[in-house]
Simulated assay, not measured.
Amino acid sequence: MRAERCHRSRGFSLIEALIALLVLSIGMLGAAAMQLNALQGAHIAYQRSIATLAAQDAQERLWAQMAKGGGCPDWSDARELNELDWNDAWSGYLPGFADASSVDPETSGSNADCKFTITISWAEARSAGENPEFIYHVRLPQ
């Protein structure tokens, strides 16, 4: 009786090993899915950081135009900023940036307020057809 009992409880059966392997593989698939989501989130955060840097760059270029011209930049200066190297400088970092991003003087109130709207938009291939758009409002001191 003793020899028979010891023989039965010795080691794992093949079915137990296969079930353990199945549970382990499901856990590994879950970890891989979490890693993929983390990478996508990091990429989206990277693109948002680039968009913020592009808006800050546009603001600094407006400051430079203000310092060069001695007053608040007007519509032609903002259009020149759009048409020149600002769009070209940032379109390499964000796909579709040059097609939808712009710097425009605000039309509400007078231009003496020296307010501008900086719109940053790009094509996001990973989202469900939505293109992110950030709108910054800048007021330069006079």
Rank of each mutant, 00 (worst) to 15 (best):
E83K: 04
Q142S: 14
P105K: 01
Q142H: 12
G71I: 11
A67H: 11
C114V: 09
I135H: 05
Q40G: 10
G92R: 05
K115R: 15
A89F: 03
A38D: 05
A98D: 07
L22K: 02
M34I: 10
A128E: 14
W86M: 04
N82E: 00
Y136G: 01
A123V: 08
G41R: 05
G109H: 02
H137A: 09
L24G: 15
R10V: 11
H137R: 12
G30K: 03
A38H: 07
D104N: 11
S121E: 10
A33H: 10
I120M: 13
S76F: 07
A17D: 02
G71Y: 06
W86P: 09
S101A: 03
I118D: 01
S127E: 07
P141A: 07
K115H: 08
S121T: 08
A89T: 14
R48V: 02
A33N: 13
A128I: 04
G27N: 07
G109V: 10
G70V: 13
L18I: 10
L14Q: 05
D74I: 08
A54L: 09
I120Q: 08
G11R: 10
I26M: 15
M28I: 11
A125C: 02
I118M: 01
N37E: 10
I118Q: 00
M1F: 02
F97T: 00
D57N: 06
Y136C: 00
S49P: 08
L94E: 07
F12R: 02
A123F: 06
A64I: 08
A32Y: 01
Q56T: 10
S76Q: 13
A125D: 11
S110A: 15
L39S: 11
A31S: 09
R10W: 04
A38C: 07
E133T: 10
G71H: 12
T119P: 03
L94I: 02
G71A: 15
G69S: 10
S121L: 04
L94F: 02
L94T: 03
L140W: 05
H137W: 03
A33R: 09
K115E: 12
R10N: 13
C114A: 08
E60Q: 13
A31M: 13
Q47V: 06
S127L: 14
G109Q: 09
P95A: 08
I118H: 01
T119S: 01
S49T: 15
A33P: 08
D113M: 13
C114L: 08
L14I: 09
A125V: 09
A31T: 07
D88R: 03
N82L: 01
A64P: 01
M66F: 07
E106P: 05
A32M: 14
A33D: 11
Q142C: 07
R48F: 13
L21S: 06
A45W: 05
S49H: 13
D104Q: 12
G30P: 06
E106N: 07
Q35L: 15
